[in-house]
Design a protein around this nucleic acid. Structure first.
Length: 230
DNA sequence: ACATTAAATTCGA
DNA sequence: TCGAATTTAATGT
């Protein structure tokens, strides 16, 4: 798609989404006009469990962790989401309170699509619905392999899988292979202790799959990470 | 759990 | 506004 004017990062992100290509010009303008930008500092809440859901949320820049924190402070995260991904469609559709917290792991910019816009798209646009179905299937598959991993895979493979999962939802675009995330957070995402994550990262580094940096990792061989263990 | 090291912040010129 | 010193956060063992 050709962008006509000087576009903001938010507009670029939306235009790059597969479902945006399915809209005609009028729909696209109205959707863009309704989306609200929101900036969250590192460590801030993107959304909170229990609050009413007014938006379908897309990530323009940054990294967001979805999960729950028990009262004891023990936390389990379901997924890490990167720029270009959207979440919350389940709660928007069912009109129920949010079922998890979203925390920005670094400085993050959000695109918030009002519920009304989202619902109008589901009612009027076939391509948008196709995108949603695809996303739900993808999520489903991801959760299944998460369960498998937890039971079957060893430490290194779990870290490898969880890191590569950060790239699953954006198959084609954004070859941003550097991820700024602490080892403690990788631990939260993959359900391992920080120590084990540290060991695993270095094992993977030795095999040339990634590079360990301060406050992050750089992926060298994404396919290798995805197939790790198999 | 502890020692080390990188980064962020404060402070003084 | 620069850089040294101090504090905070992440890493590696």
């Amino acid at each position: 798609m050709v962008s006509q004017t000087l576009t903001s990062p938010l507009h670029e992100m939306v235009l790059a989404c597969p479902w945006a290509r399915e809209l005609d010009e009028e729909q696209l303008q109205s959707v863009l006009g309704s989306i609200v930008e929101k900036r969250i500092p590192a460590g801030g809440y993107v959304c909170r469990k229990g609050e009413p859901v007014e938006f379908w949320i897309g990530i323009v820049e940054g990294l967001v962790k979805l999960g729950n924190t028990s009262r004891a402070g023990r936390s389990a995260s379901f997924a890490g989401l990167r720029a270009g991904e959207w979440f919350g469609e389940g709660s928007v559709l069912k009109q129920q309170a949010r079922r998890y917290d979203g925390i920005a792991l670094c400085e993050t910019v959000l695109a918030c699509m009002p519920r009304a816009t989202f619902l109008r798209l589901t009612e009027t646009n076939l391509g948008f619905n196709r995108f949603l179905v695809g996303q739900l299937v993808e999520r489903c598959w991801q959760f299944i392999s998460m369960l498998e991993n937890e039971r079957l895979l060893d430490r290194d493979a779990r870290v490898a899988h969880n890191l590569s999962a950060l790239f699953n939802a954006q198959p084609n675009a954004a070859p941003d292979l550097h991820i700024e995330i602490s080892q403690a957070e990788i631990g939260n995402l993959s359900g391992l202790s920080r120590q084990h994550v540290n060991k695993a990262l270095h094992a993977l580094e030795r095999q040339g799959l990634l590079h360990v940096d301060y406050r992050g990792v750089t992926i060298c061989d994404l396919a290798g990470l995805q197939n790790y263990g198999g």
